[in-house]
Design a protein around this nucleic acid. Structure first.
Lengths: 123, 123
DNA sequence: TGCGAAACTGGCCGGGTGGTCAGGACCGGA
DNA sequence: TCCGGTCCTGACCACCCGGCCAGTTTCGCA
């Protein structure tokens, strides 16, 4: 806490680049009125710096995979996707499998999260 | 630029609460090695603070639900979440059920998408 | 002191999911 | 012409998911 009665502003760090994170932590470490959050502590604000990852070249999704991905992001089940695209559930599973592979995801939720992070889809 | 040859770290502010934004700007304004971004300037990192009042009205998630939600967004299965939080799979399902209810989602993928859209979690 | 909210646990079960096999049709490039 | 990629379909199976029922403890608030 500062000298006055105002509590410190608690900041948490979410910086991918370790070097940048270290520099920020060092700079912000001992500033009056400011404090870095302990792990798990609720922060008033968060310092964010994400790597803009290479994407469109790297991951080449086919049009059909993009169709399936979009419906997955809507929370649709394989059966729903099949109905909407007019194909069989088997084929949907086939595309979902390809997506999990290409996006390096462990499940459909992870796939949607990865795709959103990489800007492949917009939530 | 600092005295040494290392360029300043440029920070941009994305803080909803004007009072908090002012305090942060004042605190960070004159730190050697740090600089706040000019409007439109590309920043190395961003300080983010979503207005805490906007969302609890809308959707009031408990801390535990937020824990579970965060792990869901990482693609973790119920079993993984249970292990990471040190609770049983049943309890995880309980929280997931609450989340699906509160977020008006049909499944975990939908829940993560909804939460990301509403800014409850950051992908 | 009671009462509700939150967190936690258990069992059960229908349906969904993901992986693995198998195949066929189409099309463009080597 | 053959090859690879895309898209499509089928079957099988272990596992996961979500919903249902039931219960416990802890904590804060009226």
């Amino acid at each position: 806490m500062s000298a006055d009665n105002t509590p410190d502003i608690v900041l948490s760090l979410e910086v991918d680049d370790p070097a940048l994170a270290d520099r920020l932590a060092a700079l912000l470490g001992n500033i009056a009125g400011l404090r870095l959050a302990s792990p798990g502590e609720q922060a008033a604000a968060t310092i964010v710096a994400r790597d803009p990852r290479v994407m469109p070249d790297d991951i080449a999704l086919t049009q059909r995979e993009l169709d399936v991905l979009a419906l997955m992001a809507e929370g649709a089940s394989n059966k729903m996707i099949a109905r909407r695209l007019g194909i069989s559930v088997h084929t949907v599973k086939f595309h979902v499998g390809s997506l999990l592979d290409k996006l390096d995801a462990t499940g459909r939720t992870d796939a949607v999260a990865h795709a959103a992070r990489r800007g492949v889809i917009e939530l």
